[in-house]
Amino acid sequence: MNSFTHYGQFMKFTLPEPDQKDVCNLCDKEVGKDNLITGKNANICFECSDLAKQLADEKRKEMAFKQVRELGDFLESIEGGTSMYEIAEKIYDAGYRKVE
């Protein structure tokens, strides 16, 4: 709340509160309805949405790297002379599936 005096009279004024339908629930910025992804219980601005996607992509990349390393370790543990079909069967039994 702001206040000032005018001709010796004390005056107060308040700024209007933004419409909650125009505010991002993550960063609390008033960005307007056109710049929000609206859901049932939350509004997310494009900037926060882009950041969330970037973080999710990085997390997926980390998970994929870990799984590739685990698969590499698994393949190294298979004794020589094993056919490719036996290796494929072991990989399938271990839970690895082609994802499209």
Rank of each mutant, 00 (worst) to 15 (best):
M1Y: 06
M1S: 14
S3H: 08
F4M: 06
F4R: 13
T5Y: 14
Y7V: 10
Y7A: 12
Q9P: 00
F10N: 14
M11H: 09
K12H: 06
K12A: 11
K12D: 00
F13M: 09
L15Y: 08
P16I: 02
P16T: 10
P16F: 08
E17T: 11
E17N: 11
D19Y: 08
D19E: 14
Q20F: 00
K21A: 15
N25T: 01
L26K: 14
C27Y: 02
D28L: 10
K29G: 02
K29M: 04
K29W: 11
K29I: 01
K29F: 02
K29H: 08
E30V: 12
E30M: 06
E30Y: 01
G32E: 00
D34G: 09
D34P: 02
N35H: 05
N35T: 01
L36Q: 04
I37F: 12
G39C: 05
G39Q: 02
G39H: 01
K40R: 13
N41Q: 07
N41C: 03
A42F: 06
N43T: 05
I44D: 00
C45L: 05
C45S: 02
C45F: 03
C45D: 04
F46R: 11
F46L: 13
E47D: 13
E47V: 09
E47K: 10
C48P: 00
C48E: 07
S49N: 09
S49Y: 11
D50M: 13
D50N: 11
L51Q: 13
L51V: 04
L51E: 12
A52M: 15
A52V: 12
K53E: 15
K53N: 10
Q54E: 15
A56D: 07
A56K: 15
E58S: 07
E58W: 05
E58D: 11
E58H: 10
R60P: 01
K61L: 09
M63I: 15
M63F: 12
A64Y: 04
F65C: 02
Q67Y: 05
V68N: 01
V68A: 13
E70L: 07
E70I: 08
E70W: 00
E70K: 10
L71K: 07
L71T: 02
D73T: 02
F74P: 00
F74N: 00
F74G: 00
L75S: 02
L75W: 02
S77F: 01
I78H: 05
G81Y: 05
T82M: 13
S83H: 11
S83L: 14
M84W: 08
Y85C: 01
E86V: 12
E86I: 08
I87P: 04
I87Y: 03
A88F: 08
E89S: 07
E89L: 07
I91V: 15
I91W: 03
G95M: 09
G95T: 04
Y96M: 09
K98C: 07
E100C: 04
E100Q: 08
